[in-house]
């Protein structure tokens, strides 16, 4: 059973470089899926193949159970019922906001313009020209225009990258709200893992044209599929460990382990899973501290000389030179490289 949107073994190469290599992914109806990966990993190509702006070399793409492209057939973009929000918004510069939104509507759907203007918080701006709008407003118009024809899916290509940092956080929440209110299935492409974790219902992590892991933001962050994904999605502490008798032992101590691996392994710990407590009798030393206000990062030196980082709340008692005791709440075990 494939998803509402599904890519099946899609290949796409540009000259020698493979943008997509047997790319396979399903998106559930009504979900917001974030396709995240470093630049050049093929995520934008996946989006363009879905929209019909690019034709894959092999494989199949389905939208709502209908094949839109495979080896023998190709549905042109205007008949795929997907709305695209471009990185540069691509608002038609010669048309008003209202005419931009009306562009994808039939003559009987005029009242839809008012609906999406309201949905996106653009009431009263219908007569403006695109160049008279701020970046955030342009983005809302792009979204309103894409949503207006009630497409099966909305595709967003790096939608927040043209906004400055303060506006970006607000627009993320706003876009998420709008997409949820509209109930549309959405695929969002980004290179920013924080953005992906914040906006998505489901995150798909991509590298070199293939999907490495799919899951909820919590799943992929807490249980990354491999060390690369772990490092890509956030700060991590990598350690070597050894599994024996249902336990994995590391320099940070031993943890219960229920899994198939035996012998030498790699162990990943998030900095916030390491909890230091000030203790005169401890054997771990605080080497450095960066204080952010809402939390702080500590650099700690273990007895053997290994240095690790830990993220804790803004509690006092962690000056460089202080001695602490550690408690580690979780760890993830990977096979050795």
């Amino acid at each position: 059973m494939s998803g509402f949107i599904s890519w099946q073994d899609v290949d796409r190469a540009f000259g020698d470089s493979k943008a997509l290599a047997r790319f396979t992914l399903d998106v559930d109806e009504g979900a917001i899926l974030c396709l995240v990966g470093p630049s050049g990993c093929g995520k934008t190509t996946a989006l363009r193949v879905l929209a019909g702006f690019d034709r894959p070399d092999a494989g199949r793409v389905e939208i709502r159970g209908r094949t839109v492209v495979d080896g023998s057939s190709f549905v042109p973009p205007e008949r795929r019922s997907v709305g695209m929000v471009f990185q540069d918004y691509a608002l038609f510069p010669h048309l008003t906001v209202e005419a931009n939104i009306r562009y994808g509507l039939g003559p009987t759907q005029r009242n839809r313009v008012g609906e999406v203007l309201e949905l996106t918080g653009l009431e009263g701006m219908g007569d403006r020209m695109p160049h008279e709008l701020s970046g955030g407003e342009q983005q809302r118009v792009a979204l309103a225009r894409a949503l207006a024809p009630r497409p099966d899916a909305i595709l967003l290509d790096e939608p927040f990258s043209n906004l400055d940092a303060s506006l970006r956080d607000r627009m993320r929440r706003e876009v998420r709200r709008i997409l949820n209110d509209a109930g549309t299935t959405a695929v969002l492409v980004t290179h920013d893992q924080e953005e992906a974790l914040a906006v998505a219902d489901t995150v798909a992590i991509m590298r070199s044209g293939t999907v490495l892991q799919v899951g909820t933001p919590t799943e992929v962050y807490q249980r990354p599929a491999d060390p690369w994904v772990a490092g890509f999605l956030g700060d991590s502490v990598g350690l070597t460990g050894h599994v024996a008798g249902g336990k994995v032992s590391t320099v940070l101590g031993s943890f219960l382990y229920r899994g198939p691996l035996e012998g030498p392994v790699e162990v990943m710990v998030r900095p916030e899973w390491i909890e230091p407590t000030p203790d005169e009798g401890g054997d771990v030393t605080v080497v450095d501290r960066e204080f952010y206000g809402h939390d702080q990062m500590l650099e700690l030196e273990l007895p053997g000389g290994t240095r690790i980082i830990s993220r804790v709340g803004p509690r006092p008692g962690f000056r460089p030179g202080d001695v602490v005791r550690l408690k580690v709440s979780e760890a993830v075990v990977f096979p050795p490289e």
Partner: peptide
């Protein structure tokens, strides 16, 4: 011409 303008229009259901 910015190619994404034409793509946006195609995506909104307009014929070539």
């Amino acid at each position: 011409i910015d190619p994404s303008l034409e793509e946006a229009a195609r995506g909104l259901g307009a014929s070539p």
